[in-house]
Amino acid sequence: MAEIAYRDALNQALSEEMARDPRVFLMGEEVARYNGAYKVSQGLLDKYGSARVVDAPISELGFAGLGVGAAMVGLRPVIEMMTWNFAILAMDQIVNNAAKVRHMSGGQLRCPIVFRGPGGAGGRLSSQHSQALEANYAHFPGLKVIAPGTPADAKGLLKSAIRDENPVVFIEGELLYGARGEVPDGEYTIPIGKADLKRLGSDVTLITWSRMLTAQVLPAAELLAQQGINAEVLDLRTLKPFDTEAVAASVRKTNRVVIVEEGWPFASIGSELADFIQRECFDDLDAPVRRVTGLEVNMAYAANLERAIQPSTERIIEAVNAVLYR
């Protein structure tokens, strides 16, 4: 196992899939000569040429739709959004075309495409550049949504996403690109729809994904351990379809749940999980499900406000104390 950065893990996934399958091409802003705004596509232009690593103009709707059309006739586009904030401009193509074309055509067409790029807060970027938008895409039938939190998961899941026959929204953590972690040697994939227990515990289940995993949830679990509370940490990795079995199994084991998500609380992934848990695990719960989310405000620039808006270990511990009636 080598320890590599999250961005390099994604780069390996892209490069390996492009070597394996000539149908795969990467298109987006700054992906080719600039080697990627976040250097995820470093070196790919030299390896695969300008028809397979394509610098697009700043036309998110245009090149997202171009990708959808190419996918409809047998290519495997990977469309990079410089950030998911900009993909809002491409929402029509992702939602109205990619997610619906198989349905509208009565199963005559399929759309194997990956839309990928960073989401979540980027660090002092204010409101238009600091949004965790995964719940938006998870809302629509016809899309899969993935948000990996570690380099190993990022690589294995991106490879699966590229091989999938459906449109996949792949949201990377903007602040995770430099994060290092062990990645298995050689060829591997991680199945879409499988969660991963990142920490075993018995007193409470913390459910999370993407950057919150390493930024807040695992540190909170360590602090709780010092207080004698053994928290289990379940990393969803795939948000849609989410791993219902893994969620239910962990809840049945600990009987208490705190969901930690970077995005806003209203109509969120966490609210969907809470609904699932109260329906499927009602008798197993010893306390109501609690959620720690981004505050119901737009992101501020000031350092202290930015910190306050995002979930913190303090707020997680507070929620854990609440479900433990401490």
Binding site: F25, A51, L61, G62, F63, A64, G65, L66, G67, V68, G69, A70, A71, M72, V73, G74, L75, P77, D92, Q93, N96, N97
Partner: peptide
Amino acid sequence: IVGGQIPLAAGMAFASKY
């Protein structure tokens, strides 16, 4: 969606050229 098919056609043409 008015005009929504315009980028799709470019993608299909891209695939032909590709």
